[in-house]
Nucleic acid binder design. Structure first.
Lengths: 306, 306
DNA sequence: AATCACGATAGTGATTAACTATACATCGGA
DNA sequence: TCCGATGTATAGTTAATCACTATCGTGATT
């Protein structure tokens, strides 16, 4: 049993296809077949049911694969430790960002990180919080940028900034003359919402408890983005709530759109970094944090680490 | 980086002496020296400070050794899992049973399986043959109990017993005085039938080709069960055909109901086990078969495996 | 300076892991 | 029922790796 064998095992469990798994491991199909068979012989256990139609993992196989993943994750930590021991700012950093932050943060973040740590390229993935959390735990990501609350065993978080919410309406809307909008008044309007899975959607619904989706004027745009919603507001389809960084990303802005703050207490979300407790490159995380705080993010309030 | 390398690494960290560490690993000293050097090159980190006096572990080396120990521990768990999973009678078995067998077989089967294989809990699902077949092929079920004929690619079957059909009528019915009922005479009566999807319904209709549902006196009870039909017969709503195990499930029976056999040739159904050809826990299947045959099922004729 | 202890290096053989080519099994369509 | 497509297993070969013995180099001790 070698680490290579375990990698083959995990790949096969993921792909459920010898050929594809082999390709993913950059080896030939027979290599992988033989390795799996060798493992099965060594452990004296059938790990997979092979049939013409597909490859099914056995019950015991699944448990062993889960354990193999743990072994590989821990083994990967050895390389991370070595990298960190050399220089935490060398080697690629796998960064995950939620959809409602990525487009507004990354254009500022990337050049700043590159300047602070030129030998630390960023490998970036945008996704929902739940997916990012999974990847983070699996080791597919090193650090993620998400909104609090966020509690996962084995994961630590550090708040970075608070970001107030804004109301976005088409220019000419009756609220245009108000300097600040009370949250309850959202219930009077057609409110455009992101699809389920976006944490920001839930946060908006918390702001306005009367806005139950499906009852009344709210409209959910499944699989959509804040940018799409912005365009819909511009066409007069309704109003929406945006995080401040997303409210006016282009200097000057769109003349068809008007942004107004909420009335106090202004609703906001708290954005944080999260990483595995065991992740050794704390220096790299600090660089990310500094780069975020150095970015010109509209309306945000930095949080100092305790 | 291999698991062997990590074992050498850990041994050296413990012994702080290349020769002794090599001895403990049952390899020569140069073998261990080379392996450690290879690791250091691969990780681009100095793990040990070699001096004439002794071998000192570096700061980063100590952290990597600790991690290596974790990897080895987790890797050892794989072997433990394999040992634990080697017994086909350990671990849950996902068993599917058709609706017209489940209520009569399972009360006998479950305690017998538990006795024969205490560490093999049964996860049971009752459904139509077609649904069970699908789940079986998908791997959601491991073994199913169905009525023959049953042909599916990749699935093998083994007949377990034959079960004759019986006529159930309300007590006081004119047929009560007959010792056996000819199948054709069913067409004379209001015949209560299970809904489509139940294989038993089709088998009953085969017994009596004149009984076309929808024409004449037959009545189909969609979404119903044999127990419901039994109650309807008791109220005089008609007669029905039951498999023998369902004819008198309670000792003593119901005074409102009378059961009579068919005239020879007695119609029957053949009950079988089915599983994927690739399913590795044949021992578990055998336990199920034995437990079925050991159950006191009214009127059934066991079939010996060829 | 000679010796000793110990790790590093060189060179060689055996094992193993990888490849290509091809056999074999199964399923679906003609 | 045969044939082709798909997918896994096996055979045979090559290359890389691992582990061995023998020996060297270095620093500490006598």
């Amino acid at each position: 049993m070698t680490l290579t064998d375990l990698r083959y095992l995990v790949a096969l469990a993921r792909e459920r296809h010898f050929g594809h798994a082999a390709e993913r491991c950059n080896v030939s199909q027979p290599t992988l077949s033989v390795a799996i068979k060798k493992l099965e012989d060594e452990l004296a256990v059938t790990l997979f049911e092979r049939s013409a139609a597909d490859v099914k993992i056995t019950d015991i196989g699944a448990r062993i694969v889960a354990q193999a993943e743990k072994v590989l994750l821990e083994a990967g930590q050895i390389k991370e430790l070595a990298t960190a021991g050399r220089d935490p700012l060398s080697g690629p950093l796998k960064l995950g960002v939620i959809y409602t932050i990525g487009p507004y943060l990354l254009p500022h973040l990337i050049p700043r990180v590159h300047q602070a740590a030129p030998s630390m390229p960023l490998l970036i993935q945008e996704n929902y919080t739940a997916r990012l959390a999974e990847s983070l735990k699996r080791g597919d990501l090193d650090v993620i940028v998400i909104a609090l609350p966020f509690e996962e065993p084995g994961i630590v978080t550090q708040a970075v900034y608070d970001e107030p919410f804004r109301v976005l309406m088409p220019t000419g809307h009756p609220w245009e003359n108000d300097t600040a909008i009370p949250a309850k008044r959202l219930a009077e309007e057609q409110l455009l919402l992101l699809g389920a899975g976006n944490c920001f959607r839930d946060q908006v619904l918390e702001v306005c408890p009367l806005c139950r989706p499906g009852e009344g004027l709210q409209r959910t745009l499944e699989g959509s983005s804040l940018e799409t919603i912005r365009h819909m507001v511009a066409t007069g389809a309704g109003v929406t709530v945006l995080p401040s960084t997303a409210a006016a990303p282009i200097p000057g802005g769109n003349p068809l759109l008007t942004v107004r703050p909420f009335e106090a207490p202004e609703p906001f979300r708290r954005i944080a970094l999260a990483w595995r407790v065991t992740y050794p490159r704390s220096g790299a995380i600090d660089v990310i944090r500094q780069a975020i705080l150095a970015s010109p993010l509209d309306g945000v309030r930095p949080i100092n680490p305790r």
